[in-house]
Design a protein around this nucleic acid. Structure first.
Length: 587
RNA sequence: GCCUCCUUAGCUUAAUGGUAAAGCAGCGGUUUUGUAAACCGUCGACAACAGUUCGAUUCUGUUAGGAGGCUCCA
């Protein structure tokens, strides 16, 4: 453990040193550039610059070369602490550093300079001792834009990403890993496995599902609907569109106007494609009075939602403009809140296990809190926020699951527990979420009649079970590299006749499998058996049933797996039993 | 939306300031028995629009779409 720790620290020092070297090379090649900050990140480092003339990706080679040239003079790092006045003198030409200096002074930090090879930077430290000997393997990877201090209103700087490793072998391994990861990209596999596509004419961020992709969706949707009904949810259906009045009533409209599709004017009314389901379910609740005995009421729906995401934010199936959320709103008495939140988490954990997703590895819990100072983004009610946040924290603690807390990530109406997943590129998204809402019950008057016959205000738990189906499928494609478990595979068995003399028997088998609800397909194309096997294998179909004269005689099928294993001839009935058992197990 | 880059046929790729080559897929045939690619023929593309030029797929600009990043993510 300790070994790993110090290795990680060493790696960070190595990469941070490389960031210094990068800045030195850039300033050497482009003297009018202003360097800003250059931290270490998960797999490398970056440095942000304000270039006079924009730099191009092809210029990175030149920068790398200069880094190598400068490196020989980087014998060691020296440092000294300086006064704010000195610091301001040294960085007088660099407004970004001046801003940092002021901020550090305000925070009561001491200022220090680090120097190597004649390059001086304002820095708190964390370098290797002898860069010229230790910085053996580094590479600049890409150029990206990034706002100064991460604020949209600030100037867009140029960020150079790079990485460094102790040895060339480790660097090569890492680069090799990156190309492996490319192959699992859900956008690439989605096309290769014929699952979904996009059309410029239909519009960006609007996926079109093929038969195969739609099959996966249907299986997931049936599964989640059945599971939720089993757990006491009421599955309902409400419209994809609603009067603008509804979102004004809910309070969503002013907060999220920009990410909604513009209202549709018709006659004298305005309608909106819905970006969320909540108010629809609330109106359903309000259709009649409710007794305390009825609660909790758990409304669930596979809801199609429409959000106007900014064009640069769209990403394959992970961020789309039309998607389906496995949504639910639990309307409960306040004393039921903890149990309901716990139940929602239990469902989510069960589902994650079904999808072979592991806590800590594939996903982690985030307690997303409201920022009390941001009254524009969060409904003002400090007491309610404190209460709600404590309830969520208690539930997480009582389930003894590790979680991180994140300020300023809550919904406007309350804090939430997010289950965060990373895609293969390391980019994180919320997969599932459970939210505590103390605002909507007030706005909608979501009340119930208590034992004394008086009205009381309910609380609402918003939750998604499998999240957005599009996003889940993107994760699953990448997680399984497109080789879905049998129960999710769009085609479960490809029947391959040995020659066209066996086409008839192949069709008979096909019909028999389909009668047993097995998604089979008979490949009757005018191709050789070997070619058909190859194609089925490339489509990652779990089983191939090879049929010829021998099988026909004995009423068997010869099974080959997508891993290339030959399981030999088995009686058809036995094969069907095996398939059904495996489908049932969801493994 | 912003920054950088990309866009040649359904897919993967090639070449070129004088309108483009191939494999796979498709289509038409021929062929056909044992576990990852049968054979022959054929259709098909320079993302769109401007500009520079005798001439633009190639250079420049605009637009659209895409990738990565930033911001955002109810």
């Amino acid at each position: 453990m300790e070994q790993t720790q110090s290795n990680n620290t060493y790696l960070e020092h190595l990469r941070h040193s490389a960031a210094h070297l990068l800045a030195a090379a850039v300033l050497d090649l482009y003297p009018e550039t202003k360097n800003t900050i250059g931290p270490v990140i998960e797999n490398g480092f970056y440095y942000d610059f304000d270039f006079k003339e924009p730099i191009k990706e092809e210029d990175l080679k030149e920068v790398e070369k200069r880094m190598s040239q400068l490196l020989s003079n980087w014998i060691e790092f020296t440092h000294k602490e300086i006064s704010p006045e000195e610091a301001k003198k040294i960085f007088a030409h660099n407004p970004y550093k001046l801003e940092l200096i002021d901020e550090f002074v305000k925070e009561g930090k001491t200022l220090s300079l680090y120097e190597s090879g004649g390059f001086i930077d304002l820095c708190k430290g964390g370098h290797v001792e002898h860069p010229s000997e230790e910085l053996k393997a580094f590479k600049l990877l890409s150029i990206a834009g990034a706002y100064w201090r991460g604020n949209e209103k600030n100037k867009m700087l140029t960020r150079i990403y790079g990485t460094a490793f102790p040895t060339q072998d480790e660097l090569d391994n890492y680069l090799q890993k990156l190309t492996e990861i490319e192959k699992r990209d859900h956008k690439k596999l989605g096309r290769e496995l014929d699952l979904f596509t996009f059309s410029e004419t239909v519009g960006k961020g609007l996926p079109l599902w093929t038969e195969k992709g739609a099959t996966i969706r249907r299986i997931l949707e049936r599964f989640i609907t059945d599971e939720e009904i089993k757990r006491g949810y009421k599955h309902v259906i409400t419209p994809d569109i609603a009067s603008l009045e509804l979102y004004k009533k809910s309070g969503h409209y002013p907060y999220y106007k920009e990410s909604m599709y513009a209202p549709i004017q018709i006659e004298d009314e305005e309608y909106m494609l819905r970006p969320m389901t909540c108010p629809h379910h609330f109106e359903l609740y309000l259709s009649k009075p409710h007794s305390y005995k009825e609660l909790p009421i758990r409304y669930a729906e596979l809801a199609k939602l429409y959000r106007y995401e900014k064009s640069g934010e769209l990403m394959g199936l992970l961020r789309v403009r039309a998607f389906t959320l496995a949504d639910a709103h639990i309307i409960a008495r306040p004393d039921q809140a903890k149990a309901e939140i716990g139940g929602a988490l239990e469902l989510i954990e069960y589902l994650a296990s079904v999808f072979h997703l592991k806590a800590g590895g594939d996903y982690y819990y985030r307690l997303s809190l409201g920022d009390r100072n941001d009254e524009k983004k969060y409904y003002k009610d400090d007491k309610a926020w404190n209460e709600a946040e404590n309830i969520l924290r208690d539930v997480l603690k009582s389930r003894s699951v590790p979680f991180v807390e994140a300020n300023g990530e809550a919904a406007f109406y309350g804090p939430k527990i997010d289950i965060q997943m990373k895609n293969i590129h390391g980019k994180e998204d919320t997969a599932f979420t459970v939210q505590y809402d103390f605002v909507m019950p007030k706005r909608f008057h979501l009340n119930y009649i208590n034992e004394a016959g008086r009205e009381e205000e309910a609380i609402v738990v918003h939750r998604s079970s499998i999240g957005a189906i599009e996003r889940l499928i993107a994760f699953l494609i990448e997680h399984f590299s497109g080789a879905f478990p049998l129960w999710l595979s769009p085609i479960q068995v490809e029947i391959v006749p040995v020659s066209d003399k066996s086409n008839k028997y192949a069709e008979v088998i096909n019909i028999k499998l389909r009668e047993k609800d097995i998604r089979a397909d008979a490949d009757l194309r005018n191709e050789k058996m070997q070619g058909k096997i190859r194609d089925a294998q490339l489509m990652k179909i779990p089983y191939m049933a090879i049929v010829g004269g021998r099988e026909e005689e004995n009423n068997t099928v010869s099974i080959r797996t997508r891993e290339g294993k030959d399981l030999g001839a088995v009686p058809l009935n036995k094969f069907i039993d095996q398939l059904q058992t495996e489908i049932e197990s969801k493994n």
